[in-house]
Structures are given as structure tokens and as C-alpha cells.
Write a protein that binds this DNA or RNA. Sequence first.
DNA 1: TGTACATCAGTGAACGCGCGTTCACTGATGTAC
DNA 2: TGTACATCAGTGAACGCGCGTTCACTGATGTAC
Lengths: 193, 193
Amino acid sequence: MTPRAYHHGDLHRAVLDAAVQAVLEVGPSQVSLRDLARRAGVSHAAPAYHFGNKAGLLTTLAAEGFRMLAEHLTEVLERTGSFLEVGVAYVHFAVEHRAHTQVMFRPDLYDASRADVVQARAAAAAALSHGVATLPPEVVGPDPKVAALAAWSLVHGFADLWLGGAISEGNDGDLTESAQAVARFLFDKGTAE
Amino acid sequence: MTPRAYHHGDLHRAVLDAAVQAVLEVGPSQVSLRDLARRAGVSHAAPAYHFGNKAGLLTTLAAEGFRMLAEHLTEVLERTGSFLEVGVAYVHFAVEHRAHTQVMFRPDLYDASRADVVQARAAAAAALSHGVATLPPEVVGPDPKVAALAAWSLVHGFADLWLGGAISEGNDGDLTESAQAVARFLFDKGTAE
DNA sequence: TGTACATCAGTGAACGCGCGTTCACTGATGTAC
DNA sequence: TGTACATCAGTGAACGCGCGTTCACTGATGTAC
């Protein structure tokens, strides 16, 4: 009943949501503030009011993404206690929050040194490391750092290849299954068969 | 002594080289034909003459990248016979040919269905698969496809994280060493310790 | 309950810019005879 | 060796466009008294 109030209510959020949609449609580098304003139904100058400029907007989106990822991984680890599940959760996150992920790992598009990004990103990395730390020693091997790095590389690479369309071909469909199989390949050395 | 001949000689190559440089400096999505023309010292319309349009230029660059990658991996496999070396070579390629790699795995920027890209890309995938096929059965496991996918995910993810600046922090410097350690983590299950 | 005032949220016109693409053109090169 | 002609490679002016950003503004909201 108030179709176009002067005050939007939560334009901050609306612009971010529009950005997610726009990233999915035109890619993270083609997003324009004017387009987001159009999508949100406000004047073209409004987004700049909330985010300063384009980089500011994408920085906020990246920080949000890392925060969500950290929470997601932590939740899965606490609930399942399985690092395999955490790996699969990483892949799921990337696919389900494709837009955020695409921005997060393209730091040339935003200000990667902004405090909120740095913090959220560290939290996500910590969640992964905590997961690795729960694995039995014979799986982790002599250097936990290497194991963590391998785990991160594996799930990140899998997600990136999937998102880039490089995987789907030979592999028919089911993402979870593929992700699990690949993660198992890495981490089921000494554990139960 | 012929500072500005009307005919460049090999403008095709010169524009591609300029594109590599430009990608390194401003990112693959910010490359503009006019900038490449400037870098190559020709009129702004010249690049379009050779590549049709911007997408055509990037498509050519992607195809060239996949071709080089396929050759590189094949060469290393034949020379060393070690799949571990192939994995490390993949990472090296991504780092040494950062510009090509960045374009190759951003198919929204180019025409991924063009024949030369499809072919070169298949060749690179085949080289990786051949590598996996040479591993002892107890390492590959029951499903060679999964092993190949895991291998690709691992090296690709490692390279992507490295390029994105996500790795260098905790890990001090030496790329080859890190890449080897990570690849060994994946593939030294049953093999010699 | 009412009024004055500060602050917040969003507007819309204007700017200057670099871009992709088109197009008629021109200079250089190659080929046929 | 010379000439005519076709083709190739690159030019430069022009077009229209969407963009980021600035800025004076205005409408709505919140607060002090």
C-alpha cells in the first residue's frame, strides 16, 4: 500500500540482494551500481550513498560471504564431527552461494584489506583448520598445515571447476555424491573402509 | 629504422601479448580493445580487425592457454613418468602463465564453445587423465574417474588459492615445495615413503 | 501534545569518460601476365 | 623488368551508450524541550 515510500526501509539489504542476483546474471565484474539501483527500484545514486562506491559494495558482499562460510563450516563440524562433511559443506556453500563465492575469491574487485573482510576470512580459514585438527593423526600426517592446505585446495578446486562448468560433463549430475567421493579419496586413507 | 610501418608484421601476436600484459595489470574483465591497441602502438580499431571483437580475442587467448597447458603436462608426464610431477607442473603453469589461466577458467568472458577452445581444453583434460592412469591401482582406487577428478581439483584449487593470495601468508614462500607437499599428500598413499 | 530543529535517506540533473563497433578510406603487398 | 589489379592490413573519424561520481536538493524521521 505504500508503493514508493521515500524511505525504502532497508535499502542496504535490498542493494546487496540485487547485487547477488546481478552477479549471477552478468558476472561479478560486470555489476554496475546503476543496474543495482534499477533492480532495487531506487534512484541511480542511492547505492553510492550506502556503500561509498562500487568497490565498497563488493567488499561488503565478500565479507558477508566469508562470514556465512565460516558459520556454515563451524555448524557442520560441530553437528557431525566429520571433516568429510565439512569438505562437502564447503562445496555446497560455493554452489548454493555462487554469487558470494565468485566475489570472495576475486580480491581484485574489492578492498581485501578492509577489517571486516580480513576478520571474516580468517574465521573461515580457522573453521577449516579446526576441522582438520579433529582428524586422526595417521590421516593428517606429520604436518597438519599441509593436510589443511590440501583439504582446502581440494574442496576449493572442486567447487571452482564445478562452477566453471569444467566438471559436469563426464560426471553425471549429483554434486553431493561427486564431492563426497572426491573428499573421501583424500581423507579415507587410514580410516574405516 | 622503420618505426611505424603501415603493416605491423605480426600484429595478431602483438595484440595477444599486449592482452597478457593487460590481464596481469588490470584483470581479465577490465581488458579493453582500445587499451591493447595503445599498448601495441596501433590504431584503436586494429584489434577488432584481427579478432572480430573482444570476446573473440579472449577466446583465442583461452584456446592458446589450454593448448600450452596440454603440451606442458604431456611433456612432463613423458619425461618424468611421475604423476606427482604432473600435478606440480599444473600449479607451475598456472603461476607462470597467470594471465592465460585467469582467462581460461572464466568462460563467461569468452566463447567457450568455439572449436579451438573445446579441442584444446579436451587435450589438457586428457593429459591429466593419462597421468592418473599411470598410477598404481592401489593408489587410484576403484574408480579412476574419481581419482582424476580429485587430482584435478587439488592442483587447480591450490593454484587458484595461490593466485588469489589466500595461501602465501602462513606458508613461507616456496611454491614448488608447497605444491609437492600437497600433491604428495593426495597421491603417496600406497607408494614409497 | 506541540513545536522547532537536526539528521537521515534518497533524488535527479549534470559532468566527463572510455568504451565497442561501424565504415569509408588508404597505404602496402602480392600476383598475373 | 614492368604494369595493372586484387587483396590485405591498418587508419581515423564518428556514433551512441552506460557508467561512476558529484552535488545541491527535498522529503521523512527522530529528538529535545
